[in-house]
Structures are given as structure tokens and as C-alpha cells.
Simulated scan of single mutants.
Amino acid sequence: MMRKASWQRWLYQNVGFATAVLLLTVLYLTYNMLHPRGFSSAVAIQNSNEAAAIAFVAMAQTLPVLLGGLDLSVGAVMTLTNCVASELLNGPAWQILLGMFLTLLTGTAFGFMNGCIVVYGRIQPIIATLATGAIAIGLALLIRPKPGGNVDDDLSWALTNSVYDFADTYGLAEGGDAWWLRPFADIPVPVILIVFVAVAVWVPFRRSVTGRTVYAIGSAEGAAYMSGLPIDRAKIAAFTLGGFFAACGGLYLAIQTSSGNADIQQAGAYTLNSIAAVVLGGTSLLGGVGSAIGSLVGAMILRVISFYFRILDIDPLLQPLIEGVVLLVAVSFGAFRTLRVKNQLDLFR
């Protein structure tokens, strides 16, 4: 009886996330049934590659949204780190590892700068990140005036295919007979990377005092301040972690495409899609409710919708209309409960 009540309470508190998971399951299963090669490793690899960058950027957007703000620089930071990675991910193994570290450090440092501007400059996040996003694009254009770059071929192949391809590239497959490899051989590496980053980075942060403070700020900043919580530290940490997630997206995009591109339109599209993914995943734009895992699910929903356009041969002129309608219905359903409560504290009871 207690277990049933616990599940009911969890569903009540996470109705947006539960709705997103259900929608993703239905959409993806239907997509695979309609696809001529559905439920195959090849289709899963292709899908995961297309979804990886937006998944990381959606997780990056989650942190400032939980604070009750928006980060308009996540797409630009992803583009900047994509250009940085296209310059550094080649040569011997130590040089590639150093390049990956410097790429992630670039995004993290940019997020830290955003946090410091918001906290110490007392500027609204949406205004501050609009300005810093322009700076990031400017730096990206300095690094990559034209698309190009050189990413190690083995690295690009290994991280954008299956676990077997990864093991085979680096001599770990033992002719395909390695006992440890057989159960996991067909799993796409991008899925493992996304899950690893989410579990290794987001989950510990969510459970830390700083992570809980982020939720408290989004729910009621005044109450969080009166409770003695580290407000400034939490805000800076949230933007810093957001920069790290955006850098993960830029790094993966460079590995996937073997190049860098300071594309302003791409940066804007990823920023807007990240906001949509966050809302689809059950995170409230009012702050204090949601998670990066939910945003990851929301990003997958957006990508699955775009997959349908290919197999159903939908007119490109109708695609934005269909995406908008689906997004509006999903967001409205997920937000219905938030809109009808009179006291936001009811969301946590």
C-alpha cells in the first residue's frame, strides 16, 4: 500500500517527465515499425548520432531554466567548442586527449564566465547570455572563418558507431570473439556516451547541496536566501555545468562531422531547440521543477519527430508546422497541472 502511494506521489510530482517518456516510447516504437530497417543496429546508430548534440545542449539549457532563467548562449558555446575541437583532435593519442580536455575546458570556462556576469554583474541571464553568445560566435569565426578542420579518423569512426566498431578500431575485439563484447556489440557508442555523462555528472550534482540549492532558487529564491543556502555559488555552478554540457555537444559534433563550422544559424537553431527540449522533458520555465534527464528525453522526442519526415516523405514546407503543432500539444499537456495549481508548493507535496 505504501509502495503504491509512493508511486502515485512520484507520478504526481513528475507528470511532465512521465508524459515525455510515454510520448517518446510511442513515437520511437511506431517509427521503427514504419521504417524498412527498423529495430536494427544501423538505424539505432544513425538515430543516436543525429540526437547526440541536441541531447547535450538540452542538458546544458536545463540548469539555467531550473534557476528560473534562460541561457541564450548554449548553441553559440557548442559552436565555439566545435570549432576548437576541429583544430585540436588530431595527432598522437596524448595530443587528442589533451585536445578533448581543452575543448571541454573552453565550454566550462565560458559557462563560468556567464555565471560570474549574472551573479556579480546582477544582469538577467537572458540578457547576459545573449551578449556572451555573440562573443562565442565571434571567437568561433576567428578560429574557423570557413568550415573545415581535421579530426582523427579512428576517433571519429569509433565514437559514432557500435561498441563492436569501437573495440575493433582499437584492437579490443579479439576477432569479434571477446566474451565481454558479445552482449554489447550492437549498442551505439553515442548512447553510452550520453548516458555516461548524464549519470556521472548530472546525478551527483543533483544530489549535492549545490544542486539542491539550484532547485530551491528556482522555487523561491527569497526563501532559499533566508535559509542560508549558497545562492551565488549555486548560480555560478549551474552556468558552469551548463557550459560543460554545451562543450560536450560541440566536441561530439566535431567528432561526428570530422570538422568545425562557425554557423550562426546552427547556433540559433540549437538554442531554440534546447529550450523546446527542456519544456518537452517536463522542466518548468518558472524554475525549480525538472531534470537534465527529462531534457534528454525531450531532445529525443524532437529528433524522433524529424525522423518521421524522412520515412513519410513529408513536404519540407509542412515540417515546421507539424513540429510546432506536436510541440504545442505536448507542452500544453505537460504544463496543465502547473497552470492549475494555486500554490507552487503543491508541486512538491
Rank of each mutant, 00 (worst) to 15 (best):
A60N: 00
Q61C: 05
P64S: 06
V65Q: 03
L66M: 10
L67P: 06
G69R: 05
L70E: 12
D71Q: 09
L72D: 09
S73F: 05
T79N: 05
L80T: 01
N82Y: 04
C83E: 03
E87W: 05
L88E: 13
L89R: 03
N90E: 15
G91K: 15
G91E: 15
L97N: 11
L98K: 13
G99P: 10
G99R: 09
M100A: 12
T106C: 13
G107C: 13
G107Q: 06
T108Q: 06
T108A: 10
F112P: 01
M113R: 06
I117D: 03
Y120K: 07
Y120M: 05
R122C: 12
I123S: 04
Q124M: 11
Q124W: 07
P125V: 13
T129A: 04
G138Y: 07
G138D: 08
L142M: 15
I143P: 01
R144P: 01
K146D: 12
P147K: 00
P147R: 02
G148D: 14
N150T: 15
N150E: 13
D154G: 14
L155G: 10
S156W: 07
W157Q: 14
A158W: 07
T160I: 04
T160W: 01
N161L: 03
N161D: 14
S162M: 04
F166W: 13
A167S: 07
D168R: 05
G171N: 06
G171L: 02
D177N: 08
W179R: 10
R182Y: 05
P183G: 07
P183W: 03
F184C: 08
A185H: 14
D186N: 15
P188R: 10
V189S: 11
V189G: 09
V189F: 08
L193N: 06
I194P: 02
V195M: 11
F196S: 15
